[in-house]
Design a protein around this nucleic acid. Structure first.
Lengths: 222, 222
DNA sequence: GTTATCAGCTTGTCTGAGGAGTTGATTCGG
DNA sequence: CCGAATCAACTCCTCAGACAAGCTGATAAC
């Protein structure tokens, strides 16, 4: 038998499986360390580490003197992982939802600092499009989009965008490998157009232009 | 009443602080367990539990014989917690972004099963609006909205919606306490209207009606 | 120059001991 | 009979020591 995972991790997975299977109700106490150790055939410290791991994942909570309690039936969604596994089209549609709404809000909330940030990131993006390697260009592109979402002044939308970024980044780089220069330069105009609509406080136009731009990317992938 | 954190938790927080502070680069090895234990003035098993906790939070990774390595500079975003702390207006704007896009997509992707689900949840919602306590009504309302997002057939949007639900649920219940019956009955028409637009495959109308409905809720909060 | 070996590191696991906190039954006072 | 104080048994928490298992880089052998 090959053991690629340490015992403590295996024990954690076993416990998580049982918890998910409803063996213990929410808020209920698990058997004691010694009992669990005997049940799984491992030492006490191994069980303790397994419990610690699940505590880190916000599934268990241990209270000295009282016991170990279930506080969630499954691990919190690890969004990085969810996004890594999701279809890229689903991810891009999610991005489209977030960013078009952000563009709409930004049109009515953008500050002078936001507009300055647009000018900055747009210039960087243009420079990068002309003479930088793919990954730099993608970074510059994402910087502008992040500035746009920032201008919406909505913490939740910004956190969502940041969560999406890692997956989007790798996708964009992959896309550029295939389609060498079609996206690069003519895209700059689309980005400027979005920024202009936000500057002019035209919410509908900003949203429409964002949608159009992101739909174009989506079309390439599909 | 002050809650005394166990040493292992304190050690984990200290390590997380140092990692976030950039003391060790991504992928770099931490000092050995014995070294860390001496540094923090605790036993080796305490350090091990701290490392295990951070491993559960996907910040550290330990490889037998090699060492403990940094795989992220901060803990993954716990979205439940982010949403709990965020302004409710920000949360509702996020929901609006997700759901209007979902309505738009649903209009072109809805299946017969989705339409059946609409009829079901709308009926439940009507019943609950007439004669059920607040929390049941909220549950019925959310069930319809979830059916709508499900009909978009996009796993990311559905996960996002589910992430938002806990926070939205408590907010809705709070709202109903204040504003006893103004929202209840007249809202049913708005929900039916959304479902009809999706049934008729009118993407723009479905999105517009969703936006209008959710903006109304947002207006109450603001 | 390439491969084999191995000493010295690392983490993994178990055990025993004692400390600290919680809980529920028991006892005591009214 | 009821409420409060007591306390024993249970729980998790921490430490120390021992040994196993795995990795790494230096050294030796070819």
């Amino acid at each position: 038998m090959i053991r690629r995972h340490p015992l403590a991790e295996q024990a954690a997975e076993e416990l998580l499986r049982r918890i998910g299977g409803g063996e213990w109700a929410l808020g209920q106490k698990l058997p004691g360390e010694t009992t669990l150790a005997a049940q799984l055939g491992v030492g006490r410290s191994t069980i303790r580490e397994a419990v610690r791991e699940l505590a880190g994942r916000r599934v268990l909570e241990s209270r000295q003197g009282a016991g170990v309690f279930v506080i969630a039936h499954q691990a919190v969604e690890d969004w990085d992982q969810v996004l890594r596994r999701a279809d890229i089209t689903d991810v891009l549609e999610g991005r489209l939802a977030i960013e078009t709404e952000a563009a709409r809000l930004a049109a009515s909330r953008r500050t002078q600092a936001d507009l300055k940030s647009f000018r900055h990131t747009l210039k960087d993006r243009l420079d990068a499009a002309e003479k930088s390697p793919d990954d730099w260009y993608v970074e510059a592109d994402l910087a502008f989009h992040r500035a746009l979402v920032t201008a919406a002044h909505n913490a939740v939308l910004l956190e969502l965008f940041d969560t999406f970024v890692p997956r989007i980044r790798t996708t964009m780089i992959d896309l550029l490998r295939l389609d060498t220069d079609r996206l690069h330069r003519q895209d700059q105009a689309a980005h400027v157009a979005i920024a202009d609509a936000v500057r002019d406080s035209d919410a509908e136009l900003a949203a429409a232009r964002s949608r159009e731009h992101l739909a174009a990317i989506l079309a390439v992938v599909r």
